Computed example of a mutant assay.
Amino acid sequence: MAKMHVAALLFSCLTAFSFNATAVESKAPPEPVVEAQQVASQVNLNTADAATLQAELVGIGQVKAQAIVDHRDTNGPFASVDELLEVKGIGPATLEKNRARLSVN
């Protein structure tokens, strides 16, 4: 009999906790939509200088920024943002971190 009381008490506590957790979650402010927070201005790979690339892009330091400019000077303008992968030291992870910040127009 005592086991039934303990089990009922435990069930009641767990049920009350789950209802309280749901109530707390429903009162939290809604998460902001990521799409609404798009980057206001994009960096044009075909016109930006090394200082701008370094300042505006994530994971791009002075050496990589200069490598982007050198690649552009040697090979001509970028036709797409994906061509950034041709620059030595720029990998898929760096490109994805910066894709929303980049343009070639």
Rank of each mutant, 00 (worst) to 15 (best):
G76I: 09
V87W: 00
D70M: 07
A67D: 04
G59T: 03
V58M: 07
V69G: 02
V58H: 07
A48E: 02
N46F: 13
A67V: 08
A79V: 08
D82E: 14
T22F: 13
S41D: 07
V63Y: 01
N46V: 13
Q37N: 12
V43M: 08
S26C: 04
V34P: 03
P29D: 08
K27S: 12
L45Y: 10
S41G: 04
L45P: 01
D82F: 04
L45D: 01
S41K: 14
P30Q: 13
V58P: 00
Q38H: 13
V69P: 00
Q62W: 05
A67Q: 05
V43Q: 07
I68V: 15
A79D: 10
K88S: 15
G76E: 06
I90T: 03
S80T: 15
V69W: 00
L57V: 09
Q38C: 06
A50Y: 05
A50D: 01
E56A: 14
V33T: 07
P77R: 10
F78M: 03
E31H: 09
V69E: 01
E35N: 11
Q66P: 04
N46Q: 11
A36T: 13
T94D: 05
K88M: 07
T47P: 03
P77S: 11
V33H: 08
T52H: 05
V69K: 03
T47V: 04
A55Y: 08
A50V: 11
P77E: 11
Q66R: 11
D73W: 03
V63H: 02
L57F: 06
V69A: 02
I90W: 02
V39Q: 04
K27Y: 10
A48D: 01
T52P: 01
K64P: 00
L57H: 03
A40E: 05
S41V: 15
Q37L: 15
E35P: 01
E35V: 13
F78E: 00
L85G: 06
P29Y: 07
T22W: 13
E83L: 05
D70I: 09
P77M: 09
V63T: 10
P77C: 06
